[in-house]
Simulated scan of single mutants.
Amino acid sequence: MPADETAEGSGLGPMLTFLFAVSCGALAANLYYAQPLVALMGADLGLPIAVESAIVTLAQIGYAIGLVFLVPLGDLFENRRLILVTMAANVVSLLGLAVAPGAAALFAMMLVVGTTSAAAQMLVPLAANLAPEKQRGAVVGNVMSGLLGGILLARPVSSFLAGIVGWRWVFGLSGALIAALAAISLALLPRRVPAGQRGYGALIRSLGQLFVTEPVLRRRGLYHAAMFGAFSLFWTAAPILLMRAPFNFTPSGVALFALAGVLGVFAAPVAGRLADRGYTRIGTTAALAMVVAAFAAALFGTHSLMALIVSAVMVDLGVQANLVFGQREIYGLAPDIRNRLNAVYMTTFFIGGAIGSALASPVLEAFGWLGICVIGMAMPAVALFYFVVVDGKKG
Rank of each mutant, 00 (worst) to 15 (best):
Q327N: 09
A296V: 07
Y331K: 14
A296S: 06
A343N: 11
G318Y: 01
L317S: 04
G352S: 11
G353Y: 03
M346C: 08
A289D: 04
A354T: 01
G326H: 06
I337W: 08
G301I: 07
L323V: 12
A354W: 00
V344K: 10
A296Y: 05
L341M: 13
A334Q: 08
S304T: 02
V324Q: 13
F295K: 04
R338V: 08
G332W: 08
P335D: 02
S357W: 05
A312C: 03
S357F: 02
I309M: 12
Y345W: 00
F349I: 05
A307H: 07
F349G: 02
A286L: 11
G352M: 09
A358N: 10
S304V: 08
R328S: 12
A334W: 00
L299Q: 14
G301N: 11
T347Q: 03
D336G: 02
S357R: 08
N342H: 10
N322H: 09
A294E: 15
G301V: 06
N342C: 05
I309R: 02
G356N: 13
M314N: 04
N342M: 12
F300A: 15
Q327M: 13
F349D: 04
L305F: 09
Q320K: 14
A294L: 15
S357P: 09
V319F: 09
G332I: 02
A307V: 06
V319Y: 01
I337G: 08
A294D: 14
A358I: 03
I355D: 04
R338K: 15
N339I: 09
A307N: 03
M314H: 01
Q320N: 15
L333V: 15
F325A: 07
V292Y: 10
A334P: 01
F349V: 05
A343T: 14
L323Q: 15
G326I: 03
N339G: 11
L299S: 09
S357M: 09
N342P: 10
I355G: 02
T302Y: 07
T302F: 05
D316V: 01
Q320W: 11
A321E: 03
G326Y: 01
R338F: 06
T348P: 12
V292C: 10
T347A: 15
A289P: 02
E329G: 01
M346H: 08
R328H: 14
I309P: 03
V344C: 08
I337H: 11
S304H: 03
N322K: 02
G301F: 10
I330C: 11
F300M: 13
A343R: 10
A297N: 07
F325L: 13
I355A: 09
G301R: 08
N342K: 06
D316Q: 05
A312K: 01
A321R: 13
G318T: 06
G332F: 06
H303I: 08
A297G: 10
D316E: 07
V324S: 13
M314S: 07
A307P: 01
A334L: 01
A343E: 10
D336W: 01
L308P: 12
V291I: 14
A286D: 04
M306A: 15
H303D: 12
N339P: 10
A297C: 14
P335S: 12
A296K: 00
I309Y: 10
V315E: 07
M314D: 07
R340F: 00
T347N: 03
A312D: 01
M290F: 00
T302G: 14
F325H: 07
S311Y: 08
Y331C: 12
L308T: 15
G352V: 09
F350E: 11
A307T: 07
Q327G: 04
